[in-house]
Structures are given as C-alpha cells and as structure tokens.
C-alpha cells in the first residue's frame, strides 16, 4: 500500500490538536494498535508545538506544514516550519534542554520523538526554518480477523 497526505495550517496553538488528530485519522488505514496511535499523536504534537513556540515564537502568521507518506507498513512523517531555525541542533536534542525555561517547557520533546519513532532526523537552517523527519514501521496487525 502506498498513500500520501499534506496539510498546512497557521501556527496557532489551537492547531496542535488539529494536527495530531488529522495524522491519526490518516494512519488509521494501517490498523495501528492503540499504543502506536498514541505514539504518533504524541510526536506530531511535540513537533508542531516546537514549530509554534520556537520556530515562530508564537507569531500566528507562521505556516506549519505536515506531510505523511505511507509505504507498505511504514510511515514517514515530515513537520516543517519556515521560522527561526535552530542554531545548535546537538544542544537542542539533549534531554531536559530547553531554550525557553520561562515557558515551563520540559525539554523532552525531541527525546520523546526519538523514543517513539524508529528514525528521527532534523534539518535546520537559522532564519529559514526547521524540518523534522520521522519514520516508523508498524507491526502487522496480528488480529485473528485479518
């Protein structure tokens, strides 16, 4: 099976739930487990939140792009912004690191993405934006009904 979707939306925090629910609805065709579904919703939420808070510093005129490809049982997910970019990616992905402690950020976003997905990659250029690429293979549903 092969499929593809792409959605763009304003960098408003209201759209964090829109983004994760949209991706979850799209990958439902893979018949994921509840746990897999939660993992995908969580990583989308993390990446979109980063785009809004860090990429655009809550400037709602920014645009966030979410793209998802399905190839057999594997999805590749891209979350892109055209904002500030990350000057030091190595530092940003450290557990508990946050550039905005005043906003009560836990600094766990990238750690969660790394843990919940099979592959995790960041491309970031200062003043041009950040692209997070995530891949995950879904277990074939073992259900006796298949």
């Amino acid at each position: 099976m092969s499929n593809h979707m792409r959605v763009e939306f304003a960098a408003k925090s209201e759209n964090e739930s829109f983004a994760r629910v949209t991706v979850a609805a799209f990958i439902a065709q893979l018949d994921p487990t509840v746990e897999e579904m939660t993992e995908i919703k969580t990583v989308v939420s993390e990446a979109v939140t980063n785009a809004i808070i860090h990429g655009y510093e809550q400037n709602e005129e920014g645009i966030v792009l979410v793209e998802c490809f399905i190839e057999n049982q594997e999805i590749s997910l891209t979350i892109q912004d055209f904002g500030n970019g990350i000057a030091n990616v190595e530092e940003a992905i450290q557990p508990m690191y946050t550039s905005k402690p005043e906003l009560e950020r836990s600094g766990m976003g990238f750690t969660i993405m790394e843990n919940f997905m099979d592959q995790f990659e960041i491309e970031s250029i200062p003043h041009q934006g950040t692209t997070v690429k995530l891949r995950k293979k879904f277990l074939k549903n073992q259900s006796a009904y298949n």
Partner: peptide, 13 residues
Amino acid sequence: HFMDSSGLGVFLG
C-alpha cells in the same frame, strides 16, 4: 486521555 511534554512542564512547575 492524552498528554505531551507540555504537560510534563506544567507538573514540574
């Protein structure tokens, strides 16, 4: 039913 790392930040705070 759902929480991301923003929730962790609130609890830690």
